Amino acid sequence: MKKIYFLCTGNSCRSQMAEGYAKSILSPDIFEIESAGIETHGLNPNAVKVMAEDGVDISSHYSKLIDLRYFNTSDLVITLCGDAKDKCPMLPPQTKSLHWPLSDPAQATGTLEEQLEVFRKVRDEIKKLIIDLNDHFH
């Protein structure tokens, strides 16, 4: 079983979307998947909405702080923002890491529809990265 950990600043948008896609795309027989933040900002309703548009339900997710036991036994840690990369604890020697520098959709301004467009763009980038990750493991 390979453990993947998605880390972001507040575990409200990007890491939650990555966890949702990873759980729907990667084999549960091979991968254990979690996400967390350096802080907890609550689950962003726009993230839930745009994921549902693509058939992935993350409405039961919640914002979690880094669990050091899970972190220290992870095979792969993926940071989704510079803040998480900078503040990430020291990785154990067996752990690989990736950094996906995605913009923060929660910072989007404008009308609700304009904000949702930013969320959709980030969602689609994350989905592509998860598909590429899946291809890498096969």
Rank of each mutant, 00 (worst) to 15 (best):
P93K: 14
V56F: 02
A47T: 02
C81S: 14
Y62T: 12
G110Y: 11
Y70G: 00
S97D: 10
I30V: 15
I33Q: 00
L116T: 03
P93T: 15
R69D: 15
F71N: 05
K121E: 15
I38W: 00
D83E: 14
P93E: 14
I30A: 10
D124I: 04
K23E: 10
F119Y: 15
A108Q: 07
P89K: 06
E114V: 06
P89F: 09
T9D: 06
Q115H: 10
N46E: 05
E19R: 11
P89L: 10
I38D: 01
F6G: 05
L68N: 10
P92R: 14
F31M: 08
Y21M: 06
R14D: 08
F6I: 11
Q107M: 13
S35H: 05
M90K: 15
L26H: 04
T79S: 15
L7Y: 04
L91R: 12
F31H: 06
H99I: 08
L98C: 11
S63I: 01
P92S: 12
D57P: 02
M17K: 07
I30F: 08
F6H: 01
P28G: 06
Q94S: 13
F6K: 02
A22V: 06
D124Y: 03
L98I: 13
L116F: 06
M51H: 00
G37H: 03
I78K: 03
V56Y: 02
T73S: 15
Y5R: 00
D67R: 03
L65I: 13
E53Y: 00
S63R: 03
L112C: 01
D57H: 00
W100L: 12
E113V: 12
M17F: 10
M51G: 05
H41R: 04
A108I: 08
L91T: 09
A108L: 07
T111V: 07
S103W: 01
L112W: 08
E125R: 07
E19S: 10
S12P: 05
A52L: 14
E53F: 02
P105K: 12
G10V: 07
D75L: 02
M51S: 02
G110D: 12
K127S: 03
D54I: 00
E117T: 14
Q94P: 01
H99M: 03
I126Q: 01
E39F: 09
H99D: 12
P28H: 13
R120M: 09
F6C: 08
K85F: 07
S103V: 15
T95E: 04
C88Q: 08
E39Q: 11
K121D: 13
S35P: 06
C13D: 09
I78N: 05
G10D: 04
L76A: 06
Y62I: 00
E34Y: 06
A52S: 04
K3H: 12
K64L: 10
K121Y: 13
H61F: 11
E39C: 00
G110E: 12
D86N: 14
L102S: 12
A108Y: 07
G10C: 08
R14A: 05
S12W: 04
E113T: 13
P101H: 10
A84K: 08
H61N: 07
N72A: 02
L116W: 04
T9M: 11
L112T: 14
G110L: 13
Q115S: 10
V48D: 00
T9Y: 08
I78Q: 05
E114R: 04
I126N: 01
Q115G: 12
C8A: 13
